[in-house]
Amino acid sequence: MKIKLVVLTVFAFCAVFNAEAQKMKKFGSSIEKKIGPKTIKVPYTDVISYVGYAAPGNEDAVEDGKKFYYIYVWVPAVAPELGVRMVSPVGKNKIKKAIQSAGYKENKSSKDFFDTYITLERSTIFQKENITEEGVKSAKWTTLASNDDSSEMPKQPSGNSYNSLLRYKSEVGSPTKALTAGLYRIGFTTYKRGEVKGTFIAEVAAPVKLPGVVMAKTIAELKKEL
């Protein structure tokens, strides 16, 4: 009887751990504020969420032997900072007003997840009128920041801290690294070479309101929302 109770206790603990492990907290900016004995990161003012599903063979590019997927983001105004984070799988997270891809809707019950690795890239496209399939292919992309594993993010069901988060402050005056209005993209893959498969939540955030930000998986979908 004692053995059964121990097993049940361990099982219950694991179930609670997995539920809590995937719970996302408020997305904090790089701005810190002291409240009593604690120092917290002030939450971003503007957060846009995208819920998707990465499927093998559906990658957008192969870079250094890794299969990359892209989510495009139109930023209509200058931003002092952008934050990007990704968690896989979606699990029991319920994100209000999240953009849901068709792939996610078809695979929302999937338990597959992957070791996320993210990049924030800025293009040389600064006007809506120049956003076309050919324009995006010929545009130059600059990687502003990247992240593999973040201790700030919830652990995956495996118990590993393999979810990602990055914050990038604008380098005012730099022709390539300033956060101007324009077309950006979130690139994501896995740390190790191989297939990328599973549900995910990707979020882009700013410390100021940026009305008109659009986030989409493809250029065609982006143009429909612009």
Rank of each mutant, 00 (worst) to 15 (best):
I3L: 15
V10C: 15
F11L: 10
N18A: 03
N18Y: 01
A19G: 13
A19M: 13
A19F: 15
E20Q: 02
E20C: 02
Q22H: 02
K23T: 02
K23R: 11
M24V: 14
I31C: 02
E32V: 02
E32F: 02
K34I: 05
K38S: 09
K38H: 12
V42G: 06
V42N: 05
V42Y: 04
P43H: 00
Y44K: 00
I48R: 11
I48F: 08
Y50V: 03
Y53W: 13
P56G: 00
G57H: 03
V62E: 03
K67G: 01
K67V: 01
I71Q: 00
A77C: 05
A77K: 08
G83T: 13
M86C: 02
V87E: 14
P89N: 09
K92G: 15
A98S: 04
A102Q: 15
G103A: 13
F113I: 09
T116H: 14
L120N: 10
R122V: 13
I125F: 14
K128Q: 09
E129F: 04
T132Y: 14
T132P: 12
K137M: 08
E152Q: 01
M153W: 12
M153P: 09
P154H: 01
K155E: 08
P157M: 10
S164F: 03
G173W: 07
S174M: 05
S174D: 14
T176Q: 11
K177S: 05
T180M: 06
T180W: 06
A181W: 09
Y184L: 04
T189L: 10
Y191G: 10
K192N: 07
R193E: 10
R193G: 10
V196M: 04
K197A: 13
G198E: 09
A202H: 00
E203P: 14
V204L: 07
A205L: 05
A206V: 08
K209N: 15
K209Y: 15
L210A: 11
L210E: 08
V214D: 11
K217S: 15
I219P: 04
A220D: 12
E221T: 07
E221M: 07
E225A: 10
